[in-house]
């Protein structure tokens, strides 16, 4: 998939997406959060990007960015996709109906950056302990010297 081909095939169907070239990948796609499931179905079934390698999130204070990496086994190419949700209501549809490998990635993005993935089948903490109340990779999270720490370990 060379040059402008990704842009040509996507923008006709989804006028809201912005495609720009990025290094040796097929391109970098920015899309509004409403069309997430339709866009990824088109990427998988129409364009042949059949493997979801990564879901991550970044805190940009006013809004939070969720990014995805897709790999096409036929074209041997990556494509990067990202969307932004407001920090006041960080809700995004879960990608698990399209790519089931999004399950654990979204759990991690939820517990560390606080993106609420709607209709996720199993939104439990993955890395932090059960009952952990913070989203520690947010910029508002303060590291602290653990003086006077109260140790609470749940019953096994």
């Amino acid at each position: 998939m060379e040059g402008e081909e990704l842009s040509r095939r996507l923008v006709g169907k989804f006028p809201a997406v912005v495609v720009e070239p990025f290094r040796e990948t097929a391109g970098r796609v920015r899309f509004p959060p409403e069309i997430l499931l339709d866009l990824f179905r088109e990427m998988r079934d129409g364009l042949g990007f059949d493997h979801l390698g990564q879901v991550g999130a970044i805190d940009w204070v006013e809004e939070r960015e969720v990014f995805y990496t897709l790999w096409s086994d036929r074209e041997k190419q990556y494509v990067f996709l990202s969307t932004r949700v407001p920090a006041s209501a960080p809700h995004l549809e879960s990608l698990t109906p399209v790519f089931s490998s999004a399950n654990w990635h979204e759990r991690e993005a939820w517990e560390l950056v606080g993106i609420e993935f709607d209709h996720h089948p199993d939104l439990r903490p993955l890395l932090t302990p059960t009952g952990y109340e913070f989203h520690p990779l947010l910029r508002s999270f303060q590291l602290h010297e653990p003086e006077g720490l109260e140790v609470k370990v749940r019953d096994v």
């Binding site: 890395l127 932090t128 913070f134 520690p136 999270f141 590291l143 602290h144 010297e145 653990p146 720490l149 140790v151 370990v153």
Partner: peptide, 18 residues
Amino acid sequence: GGGPFRTAYSVVPGVDKL
């Protein structure tokens, strides 16, 4: 005492807390 990760969110600051 937690070492270089003493102030981190995920590390027990010294196993004598447990």
